[in-house]
Computed example of a mutant assay.
Amino acid sequence: MILVVGGAGYIGSHLVKELVEKEEVIVLDNLATGHKEAVDSRAVFVQGDLGNTADLETIFQKYPIKAVMHFAAYSLVGESVQDPAKYYDNNVANTLTLLNVMLKYKVKNFIFSSTAATYGIPEEDIILETSNTQPINPYGKSKLMVENILADFHHAYGLNYVALRYFNAAGAHVTGEIGEQHDPETHLIPIILQHLLGERASISVFGTDYPTEDGTCIRDYIHVTDLAEAHIKALEALLAGEKEAETYNLGNGVGYSVKEVIETCEKVTDRKANVVFADRRAGDPARLIASSEKIYKELGWKAERDLETIIKSAWNWHSK
Rank of each mutant, 00 (worst) to 15 (best):
G51P: 00
G51Y: 03
G51L: 10
G51I: 01
N52H: 07
N52P: 08
N52F: 09
N52K: 14
N52C: 15
T53H: 02
T53Y: 04
T53S: 12
A54E: 13
A54G: 03
A54D: 10
A54Q: 13
A54I: 08
D55H: 13
D55P: 02
D55Y: 02
D55N: 14
D55C: 13
D55M: 11
L56N: 02
L56Q: 04
L56A: 07
E57R: 15
E57G: 05
E57F: 03
E57L: 08
E57V: 03
T58Q: 12
I59F: 10
I59S: 04
I59A: 06
I59K: 05
F60T: 01
F60Y: 13
Q61H: 13
Q61R: 15
Q61F: 06
K62Q: 14
K62P: 03
K62W: 02
K62S: 15
Y63C: 10
P64D: 12
P64M: 12
P64Y: 10
P64F: 12
I65D: 03
I65G: 07
I65Q: 08
K66P: 02
K66S: 14
K66Q: 15
K66L: 10
K66G: 12
K66V: 12
A67D: 03
A67I: 02
A67W: 01
A67Q: 05
V68Q: 07
V68F: 06
V68T: 01
M69N: 03
M69W: 00
M69L: 15
H70A: 13
H70I: 00
F71G: 05
F71W: 11
A72Y: 00
A72Q: 02
A72V: 00
A73Q: 09
A73P: 00
Y74N: 09
Y74Q: 12
S75V: 02
S75R: 07
L76T: 01
L76Y: 07
L76Q: 11
V77D: 05
V77F: 02
V77Q: 02
G78A: 10
G78D: 11
S80T: 00
V81D: 01
V81F: 08
V81N: 04
Q82S: 15
Q82M: 14
Q82T: 06
Q82I: 03
D83M: 08
D83Y: 10
P84V: 09
P84F: 14
P84N: 13
P84C: 15
P84G: 13
A85T: 02
A85G: 05
A85M: 12
A85R: 12
A85V: 04
K86A: 13
K86N: 05
K86Q: 07
Y87A: 14
Y88C: 09
Y88W: 10
D89I: 00
D89R: 11
D89Y: 07
N90F: 01
N90A: 13
N90M: 09
N91R: 08
N91D: 07
N91E: 08
N91S: 12
N91Y: 06
N91G: 09
V92M: 11
V92E: 06
V92N: 06
V92W: 01
A93E: 07
A93T: 05
N94T: 00
N94L: 08
N94M: 13
T95D: 03
T95E: 04
T95I: 01
L96Y: 06
L96V: 10
